[in-house]
Amino acid sequence: MPSMPRTIPAPTNGLFKDMEDDDNQRGPERDETDSFHQLVRHLVADGDSRAAKASRLARRTLAQMGAVR
């Protein structure tokens, strides 16, 4: 009985695109979120220190901002 060679099916979007889609489905990686949180912490600390130098405190609650419920 003659046998036919089997071929591997081609990736649908190309190998690189398939790998990228798989990575995107996993979500952000730990080092990406850590660097983002580090940036935000730096910006908050900088803003707080600037407000303290100007003899002001940043408003933190709705009551401190004068909001009435």
Rank of each mutant, 00 (worst) to 15 (best):
S3N: 06
R50H: 10
M65W: 01
T33M: 13
R41A: 14
V40Y: 00
T7W: 06
E29T: 04
T7Y: 10
R59F: 05
D34N: 14
M65I: 04
V68F: 05
A54P: 03
D34E: 15
G14V: 02
L57N: 13
P28H: 01
F36N: 05
G47R: 08
R69P: 02
G66Q: 00
E20S: 10
L62Y: 10
G14A: 00
R6S: 13
L39W: 07
A52P: 02
A63L: 11
A58E: 07
R60D: 05
L62F: 13
R69V: 08
A67R: 09
D23W: 13
G27D: 04
G66R: 03
D48G: 03
P28D: 04
A10S: 11
D23M: 07
A63E: 14
F16N: 08
A58K: 10
K53F: 05
K53H: 08
D48N: 15
E29C: 03
S49P: 02
P9I: 01
A10G: 01
S3D: 09
E29W: 08
F36R: 14
P9Q: 06
E29N: 05
V44G: 03
A58P: 03
A54T: 03
H37F: 15
R6G: 02
V44D: 08
D18F: 00
A58T: 11
T61K: 02
D31T: 06
R59S: 04
M19D: 09
A58Q: 09
F16L: 11
M1K: 09
M4T: 12
N24T: 04
V40Q: 15
T12S: 09
D21E: 11
D46H: 12
S49L: 13
R60N: 07
D46K: 13
S35C: 00
S35F: 06
V40L: 15
D31K: 06
V68S: 13
V68P: 01
E20H: 12
D18I: 00
A51G: 01
R26G: 05
G47A: 14
G14Y: 02
E32N: 01
R26Q: 09
P11N: 03
V68Q: 11
P2Q: 08
S49C: 03
R56T: 01
A51C: 07
V44R: 11
T33D: 06
D22L: 12
E20W: 14
D18S: 07
P11H: 09
R60A: 10
R41P: 00
H42I: 00
G47D: 04
P9S: 06
M4N: 09
E29D: 10
Q25E: 15
R41T: 06
R56P: 02
K17L: 03
Q25I: 00
Q38V: 01
T61N: 03
A45V: 01
L39S: 14
Q64W: 02
R60Y: 06
Q25Y: 13
R60V: 04
F16S: 09
E32D: 12
Q38E: 14
R56Y: 05
N24S: 05
D21I: 06
M19E: 06
F16A: 15
A10N: 07
E32I: 08
V44Q: 09
L57E: 13
A67N: 00
Q25R: 11
